[in-house]
Every structure is written in structure tokens, then in C-alpha cells.
């Protein structure tokens, strides 16, 4: 809730991902409740019936089918031609979307650092399992000390010309394989939160720029004055399996402020005069709960998996327990 007094921003992969965590997440893999077609053959079941060893179904033979897949046993028993269908294993696209508005740069522990670490962990899991990984950070600014690394990112997407470019959008795409882990880390470390965001506009640009289908993990506090609904609707509308991770700081859940205050929004400098009192705090908690409930209902209606976490949650607990339970990882 309050701006983090002094932020230790991650500078390298060691800051984002420590060895203990790597050891714990190495045997995990991404999963999706929906199965999508991949571009390359990977270690994943595909909807495409293919040439893997895993049997999927039978279908009647049609002219032009490969005769190698005819089930001869059925032909012998029924004197009809059926094809044996096998599942094709293929890769999964993982798209990580981070909210780098100034409001993310608050809380103790810092919410954005938490998002960076979660994104890095998920990206690592994706990369080591031969999935395609892409990253988008909306809002924010290239980190002053590491500006060169961010701008020199080779896979940075050019901004689509059809969308106003008022909102910065940083992206990295088509990472695949364990060796691209460092590229992902460099990308994540190159951004620091800045300015205001327009989630709808950012979502539009992400949707326009992404290719194919896959799993999209959106990390944000979802405290957006303009509303998260349009953005999420856009993201899910293109057939992506969207996983929303709402990250709140502990201070936002239990405000530590007292007295007569003029609260100033860190993003748009809007003010609210409050006299913090026990009934008001109770009221705040009710509002927060209702807001989360509203978000949850919205997500449930659109098959978006939602997980609300506080930024003091251990990454390991989040990844190993919560995300597995919600089906993002297996």
C-alpha cells in the first residue's frame, strides 16, 4: 500500500531465482486445462492426432488417409476400415504479463519484485520443459542503470502501429530452451515500474502482438481505476488459457495507517481525505473483500483461473503448492 521506502531491485538471475528454488521446481512442468496446438513437436499432448505412441481414438477411414494408421485388428474382426489415431506431443506457449505501473512498486515486500520473481520462476519452468516463453511488461520504464540491456533486447517486439503508443509495452518473445533463461532474466531485470497504465490498451497490444495460443499468466494487483474487465476480456478472447495472479501487499490487506490523512494516489495523484477509524478500517476490509470477490466472479465466468496472493508469500509455497493446486503446474 505505502510506497516501499528502499527497494533492492533484482539485477540478475541470482536475485530472481535461487538454487534451492531451482531444485524444487525442476521437476515441475506447465499444464493447461485446455490443450492447444503447438508449433513444434514437444513433450505435450496435442489435440492434433499424430504419430506419437499414445493411442487416442479411432475414426473411420477416408480416402487419402495414410494407410499405415489403419487398425488391422479391427479390419480383421469387423471387415471395416478404421484409422488408429495417436496423440501428438507438442510444446506449450507461456506468456507472462507483468503490470509495471507505479502502484506495483509499493508494499513491503515490494509487489513488483515479487511479480518479477514469480515470472522468472514460471519462465524457468517453461524454458526447461521446452515450452515457448514470451514476456510482456506494460507500464514501467527501462531501468536507468541497465538501459542498454533492455533496449538491446533482440526479440523486443516493435510496437504495432495501429495502437497509440502512449503506454510503454516491453516484450520478449519466442524464448525456448534452457539456454534462454538468462535472456528472460535480463529482460525482467531491465524494467522498473513507472507511470500510469491503461490495462485495456496494454491488453489490446499484447493480444495483437501475440501469436498462436497458449497459457497466459497475468501478474497484477488489478487495482485499476479504469477497470480490469475489458483487458481481461481481450486477453481471454483470443483463446488463451489465462491465469490471473493478483498480487497485493500485506499493507493493502491490513492498512497500517492511523489518524487524519490525505491519501494521495501514487499513480494519478488523486486524493482522498480519510479519518482512519476502526469502523472505516472495517469498511475498507469489506470493500477489499468485495473487490476480490467481484474479480473472482468475473474470472470464473470467463474460465480465467484466479489466485490472490500477498507479496510476502514465499515463492516456493506459491509455485509448489498454490499453482499446482490450481492446475497451472504439474
Amino acid at each position: 500500500m505505502l510506497p516501499t521506502p528502499s527497494i533492492k531491485r533484482p539485477a540478475s538471475i541470482e536475485d530472481l531465482l535461487d538454487n534451492d528454488l531451482i531444485a524444487r521446481v525442476s521437476q515441475l512442468d506447465l499444464a493447461s486445462t485446455k490443450i492447444f496446438a503447438g508449433k513444434l513437436r514437444g513433450e505435450r499432448r496435442s489435440k492434433k492426432r499424430g504419430e506419437s505412441v499414445e493411442f487416442a481414438d479411432h475414426r473411420p477411414y477416408a480416402i487419402g488417409d495414410d494407410t499405415r494408421h489403419i487398425d488391422w485388428n479391427i479390419l480383421a474382426r469387423l471387415d471395416r476400415l478404421f484409422l488408429k489415431l495417436f496423440l501428438e506431443e507438442e510444446d506449450l506457449s507461456l506468456h507472462l504479463v507483468l503490470d509495471a505501473s507505479l502502484s506495483s512498486d509499493c508494499g513491503e515486500p515490494n509487489k513488483f519484485v515479487f511479480m518479477q520473481r514469480v515470472a522468472m520462476t514460471l519462465g524457468y519452468i517453461g524454458l526447461v520443459n521446452f515450452n515457448r516463453v514470451a514476456g510482456s511488461v506494460f507500464g514501467g520504464a527501462p531501468r536507468s542503470t541497465d538501459q542498454r540491456a533492455a533496449t538491446s533486447e533482440p526479440d523486443s517486439a516493435p510496437l504495432p502501429r495501429s495502437v497509440p503508443s502512449s503506454i510503454p509495452l516491453h516484450a520478449i518473445r519466442d524464448l525456448r530452451g534452457r539456454r534462454r533463461v538468462h535472456d528472460l532474466a535480463r529482460f525482467l531485470c531491465s524494467i522498473e515500474p513507472a507511470g500510469d497504465t491503461d490495462f485495456r490498451e496494454s491488453a489490446m497490444r499484447i493480444v495483437l502482438s501475440r501469436r498462436g495460443r497458449g497459457v497466459m499468466v497475468v501478474l497484477s494487483d488489478f487495482l485499476m481505476k479504469e477497470g480490469y474487465q475489458d483487458g481481461l476480456r481481450l486477453l481471454v478472447g483470443r483463446g488463451y488459457d489465462v491465469f490471473a495472479l493478483q498480487v497485493l501487499s500485506p499493507q493493502e490487506v491490513e492498512p497500517p495507517v492511523r489518524g487524519d490523512l490525505r491519501l494521495t494516489d501514487i499513480e494519478d495523484s488523486a486524493t482522498a481525505d480519510v479519518t482512519i477509524s476502526a469502523p472505516l478500517l472495517k469498511r475498507y476490509r469489506q470493500v477489499l473483500h468485495a473487490y476480490q470477490e467481484e474479480l473472482r466472479t468475473f474470472c470464473a465466468q470467463r474460465e480465467i483461473a484466479l489466485l490472490c496472493v500477498q507479496s510476502n508469500t514465499p515463492i516456493e509455497t506459491l509455485v509448489v503448492e498454490y499453482l499446482r493446486r490450481r492446475g497451472l503446474l504439474r
Partner: peptide, 23 residues
Amino acid sequence: LKLRRRPQEISSTLLWKRAIEDL
């Protein structure tokens, strides 16, 4: 008369405004 209020920067006034509106 209005109270003299202490300024405090926060991440978002969204929830606070809603709480005040509710009150």
C-alpha cells in the same frame, strides 16, 4: 471546519474511495 490532514502517499486510492463512499 476541516481537519488538517497529514498527507500520505499510497498505492491506490481506489479501495479507500469506495470505503468512504460506502460510509
